[in-house]
Design a protein around this nucleic acid. Sequence first.
DNA 1: CTGAAAGCGCTAACAG
DNA 2: CTGTTAGCGCTTTCAG
Lengths: 371, 371
Amino acid sequence: MKVTIQDLADHLGISKGTVSRALRGYADVSASTVARVQQAAKKLGYQPSAVAQGIKTGLARSVGLILLPKSRAASRPFLMQFINGISTSIAKQGYTLTVATAQSDAEMVELHRDLFVQRKVDGFILPRTMHDDPRIQILDQLKAPLVLYGQTENLTQYSWFDINQVECFRRATARLLAFGHRHLAFLGGDAPLFYNSLRRKGVELGIQEFEREEVQLQIFENITTVPDGLECAIRLLKSPQPPTGFLCALDLSALGVIRATKQLGLIPGEHVSVIGYEGIPEGDFSEPGLTTFEVDQYEAGFQCGVKLMQLIHEKGAKVSGTLTMAVLLERGSDGPVRFNSTELATFIRNRKRLLSSQEKLHRMTEKSLRN
Amino acid sequence: MKVTIQDLADHLGISKGTVSRALRGYADVSASTVARVQQAAKKLGYQPSAVAQGIKTGLARSVGLILLPKSRAASRPFLMQFINGISTSIAKQGYTLTVATAQSDAEMVELHRDLFVQRKVDGFILPRTMHDDPRIQILDQLKAPLVLYGQTENLTQYSWFDINQVECFRRATARLLAFGHRHLAFLGGDAPLFYNSLRRKGVELGIQEFEREEVQLQIFENITTVPDGLECAIRLLKSPQPPTGFLCALDLSALGVIRATKQLGLIPGEHVSVIGYEGIPEGDFSEPGLTTFEVDQYEAGFQCGVKLMQLIHEKGAKVSGTLTMAVLLERGSDGPVRFNSTELATFIRNRKRLLSSQEKLHRMTEKSLRN
DNA sequence: CTGAAAGCGCTAACAG
DNA sequence: CTGTTAGCGCTTTCAG
C-alpha cells in the first residue's frame, strides 16, 4: 500500500541508494537515470518518509510554537495571522509548524523541552517574551535554535524580531501632548511580559522630550482585558484629577476605556482621548473607532520563520535582530483636548444631571425621526 | 549530547530492549527494573525520539490542519480557539498539531496528500467542508483518517462534528417572524462551502413552518465580508420593497448590514433587524451589539481531536457524527418590527431630510452638554 | 524476566 | 556513474 524507496528501486531495477541520490539531486548520477527515477516516483506516487529521513538527518523538519490557552483574551487576537506568516515562510524549505498548547506556565516550559528532546521539532518561535524568560533558559541549555518575537535581556545572543514599541508609544504620547493633553494615564499589560516595559518606556520618553509644560502621568499595570480597562478608567475618571488622555498597551484595554467613557456620559475622542496598540479588528467596530497602531502579524510571523530557518540550516549562522514599525491608524478615539483635568472632573461630577438631559433630548430626536 | 536509549542501557548495564519495554510499560518486566529504568531516564533526561519511534510504528504522532490564508477574512475569526481545542485534546495521547498553509485550493489538496504520504501526519481535520470536497476525495484514496468540521455529502462514511446550523437559522428566522418581520433577506456566505446550504435551508424551514401570513424572502450568496454585507444591504434597503429583517450566514456580513443601516440614517434593531452567526468578538463592539449565535470553537476543535484520535488508534473504530447547538446571544441588532417593508421604503426615501434634522438635534444635544 | 537480533525507510560513505 | 553496506534510534519478536 505505502510505496517505499525499495519498491521504487525494484520497479526500476536499480538500487535504492541510486534512487535516493537521484531524488536528492546529487551530482554523480546520470541525467537519464535521474529523469527515469523522477518519472517513476511521480507515477508510483513515491515521496520519501519524513520520519525515516529524520532519523538519519536528526531533523524533524518542523518548528514549534507553543500557546497558552489560559490567557485567551490576551493571546488570541494576533496569533492566527502570525501562524500563517510562520508556516508560509518555512514551507519553502519543506518545514511545517507544530502547534501545541500548554495549560500553565510550568507546563509551557516542559513542553518546549519535551518537544525538542523528542525531536518533534528542530527549533522554536517564542512569542510574548518575558523578563528572564524561562523558555529561553531551558532552550539555551538544550542548544535549541530559537527566535524571539519580542525582545528581552541579553538580546545580542538571540535572533529576534520585534516592532519598535518604544517608538510607537513615544509617538502616541507626543500626539496626545500635541493635542493639548497634560494629564495622561498609561495602562500597561501583563507585567512579566517584556513588551510592557518597552511601551512604558516609550511613554516616559515622549513626556521627557516634551519640555513646554508640566505633564502628569499615572501608570498602571496588568490591565489586559476589556473589563480591566473599563474598571480602571472608571476609577480614574471619577478621581479628583482624572487623566484626559489614555495610552493603552493593548487594544482590549483601550476598548474598555472607551466603554467607561461612554458609561460616564462622555464622548470618547472629545472629552477623553484613547490610543491603543495592536490593531485588532474590534477596534474598527467600536464607536468611535479606536486610534491604534496596527501591527502586521503576518509579516512578523514570516520574518520569525525566515530567521529560524537560517539558524537551523546554516550552521554557525549568526543571530540577527530586526526592529520594524507599526502604522498608526487614526480613527476617532482621540483628538484635541476639550477640558483640562480639573474641568473634566467637574464635568463628570455633574454627569447625572447632564445624562438625564441628554436622554430627554434623545427622546426628542427619536420622536422627530418617527415624524 | 543527545541521550539515546543505548546510553541509558549502558548506564544501567542492561540491554536496550529491556529499557524499551520497561519504559513502554510492558507486563513482562520486573517491577524493580522498571523503577530503576524510569529513575535513570529522568536523571539523564532521556526521552525516546519521536522520529525513531515513528519509523517503527509508522505513526508521526501528529495530526494535520491546513489553512488557506487567502480567505483571511472568512477563516480568521474562528480558528485560534479551534486550534487550541484540537491541540489540547490530542495532547493527552502525545500528539501534536501540524499546521500548514496553502496558497490556493489546488495547493491545499496537494498539501494534504504530501503531508500524509511523507508521514508527517497521521490524519487530518478538515474545517470548512465543501460540496464534493476535493480534500476528502484524495484522502479517501490514501485511506487517511479524517474528521470533518462541518457536514457534506455521504456523511455516514466519515467522522464529523458540526453545529446544527439548520436549527440555528430556523430559530433565527422564527424569531424575526415572531417580531413581526415579513420581508426577510438571507445573506449567504461562500457558495461552495457546505454550511451555506444548511443555513439557507434553516431559513427556508423557518419560513415554511410559519403559516400565519405570507413572507417574502430574498436570497443572496457569496456575501463574506463587511464590505460585501454593507454593499448588499445598501442596495436592498434602497429598493422599492426592502427587507426589514436580515439573516446573515456570517457575523462579518451582518456587521456590514449594521453599517449600511446606519449610513442610511436608520437605527439597527429598530428600523431594521439583523442576526448573524458565529459570535466573533467584533459583534460585541458594534453599536448596537450584534444578535448572533455563538459557536464554541474550542469545543468543536476538542471534539474533532477526540474523534480523530479514535480513528487513528482504535483500529476498525467506527466513524461517528456529532451535532451540537450554538447559543443565541441576544444583543441589540434585532427587535420588534417598526415599519413594514413599504413604510420602510418611504422612510428611507425621506432619509435626507430626516438625517439633517437629526444632525440639528445632535448639535443641540452637544451644546447643552457643554452647558 | 531479560538479552540478542532483526528491521522500520532512508542516507551516506565506500567500493567498484 | 552505480551497487553495496552500515547505521540512525527505536520496537519487537524470539530464545533463553
